[in-house]
Nucleic acid binder design. Structure first.
Lengths: 159, 159
DNA sequence: GTTTCGATGAAAAAAGTTATCATAACTACT
DNA sequence: AGTAGTTATGATAACTTTTTTCATCGAAAC
């Protein structure tokens, strides 16, 4: 269980097991595959009637990432997010819609192979990777097509 | 030439060709494979005796990224960087050292294949991707080995 | 040359994150 | 259990990066 990993790592470093640290980790454990920013975690805690200082939220997220329990991810909207690192060590890959910002995850063995190849070619000890594909999701694509039609109709009726 | 692309795109949108926009693009064209943040661009402009407002730097970087002339990249240090998008449409992939922050680029056909596959599987129109491999570069790895040796020697001499 | 409207510069504001410091509370030791 | 010794927390200030505002400037069209 991930909470035990946290406790073990804290003891190893002579740091303390606190209510706040466990609570923030639980937020991630309760919603698999979620990517939360500091602000969002703060809000979720308030909704649970847990008043935890924002400073502690930031500190704890950095700590959990340092332990390798969370992974830091940035989708390019200026917000730093974190997600639960998976047990099997597989990295999460994200498919991001440029229009609505929706994020979908996917897995691929090809990436693990590529990691091996590049590691050998460059001499880097690669530990993990992050892949982001940017594009337009099916829903937004439909909307764009519809708008184009409407504009065509509108410009025709003007004539 | 990339400057022509900028001019063409600006005209297409009814926006203006300005000294500032061309100058900022030139900075990227003069140093291939560089990744600059807004602050860095501002400094480089000052060194060239070109006083351009920071607001314009931010606006222009966003504009060039919107045109697809620049790609936005984040290495996880809190600074948003941009790099010149390549002509052939190939995305740049980065190998980042966790210790010293050194960034190396690499290319791979496998990623283009993967992009195709995922695009078909998910229905997303994928336009570009960004791959970051995190690890330890050969230099830093050597240093770690050396330090471990020193510590072993030190602890032995304490006994 | 004049007009028009988008772009720029300077500064203020906003957003996100980190640092400071007094107080609270975890842990080890008796 | 009680206590001492530190680390963690909370509240706020400070900082950093980015965006907004608005008066002025200048590119493009006529």
């Amino acid at each position: 269980m991930t909470l035990d990993i946290l406790r073990r790592e804290l003891k190893k470093r002579g740091q303390r097991i606190t209510y706040q640290r466990e609570l923030i980790l639980k937020i991630f454990m309760e919603s698999e595959n979620a990517h939360f920013g500091a602000e969002e975690i703060y809000r979720l805690l308030l909704e649970k009637r847990s008043r935890i200082s924002k400073a502690t939220v930031y500190r704890t997220l950095a700590l959990l990432a340092d332990f390798g329990i969370l992974n830091k991810i940035e989708f390019g909207d200026g917000i730093v997010r974190y997600e639960l690192a998976s047990f099997d060590g597989k990295s999460h890959n994200h498919l991001i819609c440029k229009i609505c910002g929706k994020v979908v995850e996917f897995e691929s063995d090809k990436l693990d192979e590529l990691m091996e190849t590049i590691s050998k070619e460059t001499g880097y000890r690669i530990e993990n990777y992050q892949v982001k594909f940017y594009g337009i999701c099916p829903d937004c694509f439909k909307k764009i097509l519809r708008n184009d039609d409407n504009q065509k109709i509108a410009s025709e009726s003007v004539k």
